[in-house]
Amino acid sequence: MTVREGLLALLHEGPRHGYQLKTEFEAATGGVWPLNVGQVYTTLDRLERDGLVRITGAGESSAQKVYEITREGTDELGAWWEAVPAEDPPPRDELMLKVLMAIEHGHQHGLRVVTRQRTELLALLQRKRRERTAAGDTGGLAAELVTEALMARAEADLRWLDRCEAVLVEQQSNRTKGSK
């Protein structure tokens, strides 16, 4: 998602002021994507230039302008909802690259880095769990689902690190057996 797509999605629900868009954008994304007002107006200018939104009930200052989505804007938004993230994203994942580079330095180093990464990820899960317990039900649905997403990703990464550990340990014990 880009800011552009996010604003179109919000405008699809009805005309809005720039500042209102900023607030709603941040709330909808559970606080993980803060925007400044300037960014919102720049994006709205481009959307207007491209004919995807238009100004209704214009006032003197930009703060008073109300924006609404056009037919073309609705089409573009529809295409975005339909689009599926590329099926085969390039596997350029920071954690994976770090572990691969570590193994390049030798099994022992690989195992140490795997172990450390796993500990830090689990510590992250602990922090998220505590934050969520502390927030109770007050954080709202978006915030809760953001935490769920972070936790699900951390869990997936942890499973992968467990696999790395198992493979490294197995290779190592095969080597020691082979050298006997």
Binding site: T115, T119, L122, A123, L125, Q126, E155, R159
Partner: peptide
């Protein structure tokens, strides 16, 4: 991991040793 995340402290073992 999701159960371990409730813990105050998480201990990792491998081959009879505490590794972290």
């Amino acid at each position: 991991p999701r159960f371990a995340s409730w813990a105050d402290r998480v201990v990792f073992m491998r081959d009879g040793q505490v590794v972290d």
